[in-house]
């Protein structure tokens, strides 16, 4: 019974203290002083990144939506109407739409995390601030990977269009 209580208390302590412990492990004294001393400047820098990312997100999603709705879908329709094999085109368009939706959702999560990090009192909670920054950093990396996947899908669609040229009967 006593052993069970000790295990339970230890587990709770690990759960409660682990984020701080991991941040403490990553932060050295010099970094801790830097965060405490430059809190306002850090928050300002994060705000700039936040705003630049908002513009980037807005421009990228507008471009993706335009490419899908104004170019891909009309060409897909046209291929189907002409009874040509559009399987590859339809599948790439579908994958792209899913990735763009994933990008939107990932951005939403990242934006919340970055905003909450900016709102943190880094002068008095440097460990929590750094831990939150680490999460935002990982989420931003995830966004970068999604953008790369989207670019790959755009290239794949372009290759499929290239493959249409010999089928149209005229040499490239």
């Amino acid at each position: 019974m006593k052993l069970r209580s000790i295990i339970l208390v230890s587990l709770c302590a690990v759960l409660v203290l682990s984020p701080r412990a991991s941040a403490e492990g990553l932060l050295n004294d010099a970094q801790l002083r830097m965060i405490r001393g430059n809190c306002a400047a850090l928050r300002q820098s994060l705000t700039k990144t936040h705003d630049a990312d908002a513009v980037l997100r807005s421009n990228l999603t507008a471009q993706y939506d335009d490419i899908i709705s104004k170019l891909m879908m009309p060409l897909n329709n046209r291929l189907v109407q002409n009874k040509m094999d559009a399987t590859e085109f339809l599948s790439t368009t579908d994958d792209l739409q899913k990735k763009v939706a994933e990008f939107r959702s990932q951005y939403s999560i990242y934006e919340r995390k970055l905003s909450s990090t900016i709102d943190m009192d880094c002068a008095n909670q440097p460990w929590d601030f750094y831990q939150s920054l680490g999460v935002a950093r990982d989420q931003r990396r995830g966004l970068g990977n999604t953008v790369h996947s989207i670019n790959d899908l755009l290239k794949r669609y372009r290759s499929s269009v290239d493959g249409l040229l010999p089928k149209t009967g005229v040499a490239r």
Partner: peptide
């Protein structure tokens, strides 16, 4: 789109924020 800076730059890195150990 493609040449534009995407989210993979290191804007949140310790180096960019002046927190390099």
């Amino acid at each position: 789109i493609t040449p534009v800076q995407d989210f993979s730059n290191n804007a949140l890195s310790d180096e960019s924020l002046g927190l390099a150990a």
